[in-house]
């Protein structure tokens, strides 16, 4: 059987984290090809419904990344809003039978290409330990 290769969806804010991910690229910092990035203007735009949709559609992990707390947010406080929502959603995820560790909230600035790559490497490693998203397994246990 081939090794479990997790699928991760990343919601990245345009100003800090998406720029940080671009910087990882221009710096040629290599990380595993498991993430599919969705650009949003602000981490505060990320509706919990988007995250749930990602899990429902089979994501093994979801990353929400925005500008550093407390004051880097391009829109003043969108990062705090993301912080509140993600924290709350992590609690709810457990009740849906999804390990909260599958959802991560990280702060990545425009100058932190290396940090972005490190987060992805770490996330892929952790999710490999957890195995596939239980929803994706369609009720059946796997890996």
């Amino acid at each position: 059987m081939t090794e479990f290769d997790p699928k991760i969806v990343g919601f990245l804010c345009n100003w800090c984290s998406y720029a940080g991910a671009d910087l990882a690229g221009v710096s040629r910092i290599q990380y595993p090809p498991n993430i599919r990035i969705v650009r949003v203007m602000c981490s505060g735009r990320v509706d919990p419904a988007f995250i749930l949709e990602a899990f429902k559609s089979g994501a093994d992990g979801v990353l929400v990344a925005g500008c550093h707390l407390p004051a880097d947010c391009h829109y003043i406080s969108g990062n705090f809003k993301a912080y509140r929502r993600v924290t709350l959603l992590k609690k709810l995820l457990q009740q849906f039978g999804i390990e909260p560790e599958r959802l991560r909230l990280e702060w990545v600035s425009a100058s932190e290409g290396d940090r972005f790559a490190t987060i992805i490497k770490d996330m892929v490693k952790e999710i490999k330990k957890l195995g596939p998203n239980p929803l994706r397994a369609g009720g059946k246990t796997s890996g």
């Binding site: 949003v40 203007m41 602000c42 990320v46 509706d47 988007f50 829109y75 929502r85």
Partner: peptide, 27 residues
């Protein structure tokens, strides 16, 4: 920024060019 859009309980606010349906389809 779209913060209002993700807060609105009735889905009345859409964040143009990053609407719920656009992002959900993308995801």
């Amino acid at each position: 920024c779209g913060v209002c859009g993700s807060t609105c309980p009735t889905g009345a606010i859409s964040m143009l060019h990053f609407t719920d349906e656009e992002i959900l389809a993308q995801v």
